[in-house]
Each structure stands twice: as structure tokens, then as C-alpha cells.
Amino acid sequence: MSKTITKPAKAMKKSGTMTAKRKKTLMLLTMVAPGAIWLILLRYLPMVGIVMAFQDYKIYTKDPTFLNNLTHSAFVGLKNFKFLFATSDTWVMIRNTLGYNALFIVLGLVISVTFAIMLNEITHKFVAKTYQTLMFFPYFLSWVVASYFVQAFLDPTRGLLVNLMESWGMTPIDFYNDCGPWPFILTLCNIWKNTGYSAILYLAAITGIDASQYEAASIDGASKWQQIKYVTLPHLKTMIIILFIMNIGKIFCADFGLFFNVPLQSGPLYPVTQVVDTYVYRAMMTTQNYGMSTAAGLLQNLIGFICIMVANTIVRKIEPDSALF
């Protein structure tokens, strides 16, 4: 990107008076309006419910509307948060959540950017399109369906992989009772499912690059590798940083289906599959307490929010153009 962007202010002065400026702001506000109204109604208004996290939520029998229930329920302080720390496995689930997410973010980023660049380099566009279509297939399959597929390989009696190991004279692994291979399996599943999706975001960004920039670089004698390094990657930088920051915000939330369904909810695998979301889900099945689930969600979001603010501040210092806000 050229650094010769003239400040819009210059244009403003040219075009004239304050009314024009105000008119422009007004027009831009009308553009924001539909989205903003939606956000107010469907996102901000329900935030009233966050107080449930601090309440023993009860139904107000005389006139049980939601607001009445809220105003008549007793506050219990941080009691609803306690269940997250009531077990000796709290550390395990936090470690798993943060560890897997960090791994997924870094690996996901590297692989999808690489794939996007590779797809872009394929000479025959038809072939590239075909690859891309096929890559998207996992996104259509739910984790439940994916778990059947994984099971077809790992099943202790009829699994393909297990049979293969047997025929090679190895002692087959009892996959659903052995924690060892699961960090690897889960990571593979995550890449399998999400690469097509995120590669497309990067690919679309690459597509937006002006072809003349490559031509110019090529005429200057830049090798392919140099072109990627000096043209493509700088161009992708904003997208990479933005997606990275947004993923950081979800660092304390896990992909529920991946950790719940793919290991077939097998108990012995909990040490490597238990994450915050699965823990909360299993707790909710028992207590049905909305206060507790709201509390857990609030905590997850709060941690994500702090992480994002930190990441964004750092980015703004180094690379102000790429900051989220």
C-alpha cells in the first residue's frame, strides 16, 4: 500500500462549508443506523440479563414476567461463579482451554495463510476453484457427524486404523481410553474443519491486491518468494492482525462440539478433553441454574475482553492502521 494517502480533511476543505460536513456525517449515520438499531435491540437490551450472574434467579409468582423476576430475585454476590473453582480439575480445564486455543490460533493462522497463498499460485484457476470447494466440505458437517467418521478409524474393534495397526503387528491403541493421542487428534480435527473457512478470508484479501504491484515487482527482478514477502504478506497484514485479535477474544471459549462429541464424551479422556464449555454444560445438566451459566459466560467474556484490549493496545502502538478500533 502506498503511503501517499492524502488526509481526507484536505478534500473537505475544498468541498466547502460546515453543512456539507454535517450532511456527510448524517448520511454515514443513516448507513450505520440499521445495524446499530439491531445491535441495540438484540444485543444491548438483553444485557440487562447479566445481573442474573449475581442472583439467585427465581420466578416472581405474582406476575412472572422476566423483568419482575429479575427485580425480585435476591443478590448472592459471587456464589454463582464458585462452581468453576469447586473441583481439583479446575486447573486442567483452564489449561486445556487456553492451550488448545493458543495452538489452534497459531497453527490455524499459519496454515490458512499458506493455503491461501498456495491456492493463489496455482496456474489453472479451475483447479484452484475445485480445491477450494472441496476444502469447504468439512465446514458443512457437524461435529456429531465428524465424530462418526473419526470413530470409523479409531473404534477399538472395527476401526480402520486399529485394524491396520494389528495387521502390522503393532499393539493397537485403545483410543477412547487413552489420553495420549488426543491432543494430536483434536488439533487435526480443528485444522481439518476450519482451514477452508479461514483460507477463504485470506484468499479474498489477496484477490484484492492490484496485479500491477506483482508485475512491477517481477520486472524489478523479485523472486516469487520475495514477491510473497514484500507484496502479499504486507497486504494481508491487516487481515491477519484483525482475525488474530478477534480470536484472542475467544481464548477462554472452546469449540464445544470438538471437545464434547468427537471424543464420544468418553470419561477417561477428560484430562485432555475437558474444557470450560464442556464443564459448564455438564454442570448445567445437573443444576439447570441460569445464574451459574450466565456467570460462567460472563467470566469467559471478561477474560476475552481483557485479552483483546491488551492485544489491541499493543497493535495500535506498533501498527495503528491495523488496530481493531
Binding site: F83, A86, T87, S266, G267, P268, Q274, M285, T286, N289
Partner: peptide, 17 residues
Amino acid sequence: ETELAALANVAGQYALA
């Protein structure tokens, strides 16, 4: 309730298996 929430997770890990 707090204890039961934690116990459900512990039991989930071992009981069925």
C-alpha cells in the same frame, strides 16, 4: 448446587467407564 455441579463432572469422568 456448587458441589453438585463439580461432582457431575467428576462422576462423568469415571462413573460410566
